[in-house]
Nucleic acid binder design. Structure first.
Length: 756
DNA sequence: AAATCGTGGATTTTT
DNA sequence: TCCACGATTT
């Protein structure tokens, strides 16, 4: 197939596509056609440089990105060729590599991959074992220290050698034992996938050489969010041919808290002084207005190199800034506007996204969606594969795949209840520890002891019997399902373990069964690819399940709007974007307020959010927001102040005030309130001050039936007046479908309307 | 083994 | 405030 690459590409893009020899660094601003460049570059290599598809590997950030890349290439090549192009995440790539090279490792081919929760439970078990008080030392902190070490390629013994504080002393004690347990379980954690691959390359140069010679070209997308261990993999793979192409944008680095190392970009320049650097600065996604606003938000960061982003796109409409009274009204205004956009045909639901900083914000929005009948996809919250019932069944499957998987065994041995309680499990666990074997092995040892019914046994007769029943059940399912396809295996597990009955007996049982059905479905259309031949499909299925993310499950063309965290939104784009909670403490998040580096990351996060939008951007905030039970005043986000007012239309609380459906900016928009002059927070403080002065002296002169005027909500009628300590709570019904609100007399910006 | 009580913690979460 | 988890009770 012949491709004319120069067509539809700008000069810089063309340079990037046609640079085929030696290291290449592409700095790709948002919306700069990065994915197109990567795919065209692959196409170019194949068409013009005699490179075979299987000699190229592209590392992506998510499975979704990998799939999309393959899809795009699919339109350029035949299916067969497309399949042979290697696009995957670092983790998937390493997982597969470790399976194929398992002979070189102390792992079996069918090893399990521990997820976050498995890790936590193993760590707890270790802490208990080595006598570390979980109240004094947080499991999460230890987990993160271990993960951090591994992403810097530090083994447990290296960590021990370098420990430098009491906390690290504690971590060290857990780390070593944790590693033992993991490897005894024939398992690895996420970080191990990357680290073990590095170690394998180091210990077995012949293995590395095999891959080095196979892969002529290595590409890494979202390079700003890789960690050192991942970068090393890429470097080593490219060690022979030096054709390493990395693509990233330092301004979009938002995962430093997951050990992503923004300095990888600097290291790259140092490691490859002869590297070509190309900066893609033309934006094809957003309006001039949105792009300008985004640049204003990102530019205060000290720690960055300025880019000169530009676009030929239209000026577009102003960015709508709206203030709501509280998070409920924020949600309602947002959904009203969304309904408007949909009803008027301006946007299809799939073109709209609501983005937020923390998942907790999604609940109110969900409710507003339900109320207004707008269907939505919510990403995150409780992740699909972390749902109890899904995780349980997956644990069964993992156990059947690898009986040494202690984490899975411990999870399901008593689910549904089999009278194998904590005491029994603890005893088993103790014995396994002293015997240096897995729980399953320990069970076999006990059951095979001829005298297991007398006092030398560690378990009483009843428990022993229950364990025997469990053991037999697992054996039976395992042996009986050997030749079954995946879906039948899952069915067998659900039925024979009694899990179906167990679910049906509980509330929301149907819903949970529905989730299991979804799991079955995913097994039904599960296909293995060429590279995975010879491996048990169950092993591969479990691997995919472990390595899948929520964003991967996002459906592109569903007839629903998308609700998503700002982090998850990276790499996505929507015609219309609402960012809710543009407030100090939320965006930027309160945890970053005292840490300049984290504050810069919050800024980048905001930047990522803004640049997701094509043509319509709404920045929403609430005047007051519920936080852990009590309400706190909300200060408008500092990022709002960074956007020049000429780019925005500040609607105050009344979004209906927008001029028309095209949002043509009014000559001098009438501002109900503006963050440029007196902010609501100032007004709020003023009222607090007055409240303090007047204290309870102020008398209520509102009575039910009175007409009132509210600065934000407009006209309303007092429904009820209730005296509360040092104030009065007014219940007021507002016009225009704004509903009934409860307001505090001394805080609410209301005036009594004279009766006509 | 289930039910109840109490305490602590509450960003983001590619894999 | 609200939830989850662990400890304690029955």
């Amino acid at each position: 197939m012949e491709l004319n690459v120069s067509e539809n590409l700008n000069e810089k893009q063309k340079l990037a596509v046609e640079h085929t020899e030696g290291p290449l660094l592409i700095i790709a601003g948002p919306g700069s056609g990065k994915t197109r460049v990567i795919t065209q570059r692959i196409a170019h290599l194949i068409d013009h440089c005699d490179v075979k598809p299987w000699q190229i590997i592209a590392m992506t950030f998510t499975n979704k990105a990998a799939r999309e890349m393959k899809d795009r290439l699919g339109t350029l090549f035949s299916d067969e060729e497309q399949h042979r192009i290697n696009a995957s995440t670092f983790h998937s790539f390493c997982a597969m590599l470790l399976r194929r090279e398992a002979d070189f490792l102390s792992l079996n081919q069918d090893y399990s991959i521990l997820d976050d929760t498995d890790q936590i439970s193993l760590l707890k078990r270790v802490m208990d074992e080595v006598g570390i008080d979980p109240n004094q030392w947080k499991v999460r902190a230890i987990q993160s220290a271990i993960s951090n070490a591994k992403s810097k390629l530090m083994t447990a013994s290296a960590f021990r050698a370098g420990k430098n504080s009491y906390f690290e002393e504690i971590v060290d004690r857990v780390f070593t034992r944790y590693e033992e347990l993991v490897s005894q379980s024939n398992a690895v954690d996420f970080d191990d996938l990357i680290m073990n691959t590095n170690i394998l390359f180091q210990n077995h140069p012949e293995v590395l050489e095999k891959y080095q010679s196979r892969y002529l070209h290595i590409m890494v997308d979202e390079f700003q969010d890789t960690n050192l261990a991942q970068y090393q993999i890429a470097q080593q793979l490219a060690g022979l041919h030096k054709n390493l192409c990395v693509v990233g944008d330092p301004d979009q680095s938002i995962y430093s808290w997951r050990n992503a190392d923004i300095t990888n970009i600097l290291s790259f320049k140092k490691d490859y002084p002869d590297a070509t650097e190309i900066s893609l600065e033309q934006n094809y996604r957003s309006t001039k207005t949105i792009l300008a606003a985004a640049q204003k938000v990102i530019s205060p960061n000290q720690n960055r190199v300025d880019k000169d982003l530009w676009t030929q796109n239209d000026e577009g409409s102003p960015i709508i800034i709206a203030e709501a009274y509280d998070e409920f009204e924020e949600a309602r205004i947002t959904l009203n506007e969304i309904q408007n956009l949909i009803d008027t045909g301006i946007c299809k639901p799939a073109e709209i996204a609501i983005m937020f900083r923390v998942n907790a914000q999604s609940r109110v929005l969900e409710e507003a969606c339900l109320k207004s009948g707008v269907s939505y996809q919510l990403i995150g919250g409780i992740r699909f594969y972390q749902r109890q019932e899904v995780k349980d069944i997956v644990s069964y499957l993992r156990l059947l795949n690898n009986f040494n998987d202690d984490a899975s065994l411990a999870r399901i041995i008593n689910v549904p209840q089999r009278s194998i309680g904590k005491t029994t499990l603890n005893k088993l666990s103790e014995q396994a520890t002293s015997g240096g074997c897995s729980l399953w092995n320990q069970i076999e040892v006990i059951l095979n002891r001829p005298d297991h019914d007398n006092s030398t046994s560690f378990l009483n007769k009843r428990s022993l019997n229950s364990v025997q029943v469990f053991y037999n059940l697992m054996k039976e399912i395992h042996d009986g399902s050997k030749d079954m396809d995946l879906q039948s295996k899952i069915d067998l597990v659900i039925e024979r373990t009694g899990y179906r009955d167990y679910l049906q007996a509980m509330e929301h049982g149907e819903e949970r069964l529905q989730n299991l059905n979804e799991l079955r479905e995913s097994a039904a259309d599960f296909i293995t690819i060429e590279d995975e031949e010879g491996l048990d499909p169950l092993t591969i299925f479990l691997e995919r399940v472990s390595l899948i993310s929520d964003v991967d499950r996002l459906e592109d063309h569903a007839n629903s709007i998308t609700m998503i965290t700002l982090h998850q939104a990276k790499g996505l784009e929507y015609k219309t974007v609402f960012i809710v909670g543009m407030e100090e403490g939320l965006l930027p998040h309160s945890r970053s307020l005292e840490h300049p580096e984290q504050m810069e990351e919050e800024r980048r996060l905001c930047y990522v959010g803004l640049t997701r939008a094509h043509s319509r951007l709404y920045l929403m905030r609430a005047f007051r927001r519920g936080y852990r039970g009590n309400y706190e005043p909300s200060i408008p986000s500092r990022f709002l102040k960074d956007i020049p007012s000429k780019l925005t239309l500040n609607t105050g609380g009344n979004i209906k005030q927008r001029v028309d459906n095209n949002y043509k900016k009014a000559e001098s928009p009438k501002k109900l309130s503006s963050i440029d002059d007196k902010s609501p927070y100032e007004q709020y403080k003023e009222r607090i001050r007055q409240k303090k002065i007047n204290s309870s002296k102020k008398k209520n002169d509102f009575n039910p039936g009175d007409k009132v005027m509210h600065d934000v909500f407009g006209e309303g009628v007092v429904v009820d007046v209730k005296a509360i300590p040092s104030d009065f709570e007014l219940t007021i019904a507002f016009k225009d479908g704004l509903g009934i609100k409860k307001l505090l007399l001394q805080l609410a910006p209301i005036k009594k309307l004279n009766n006509m």
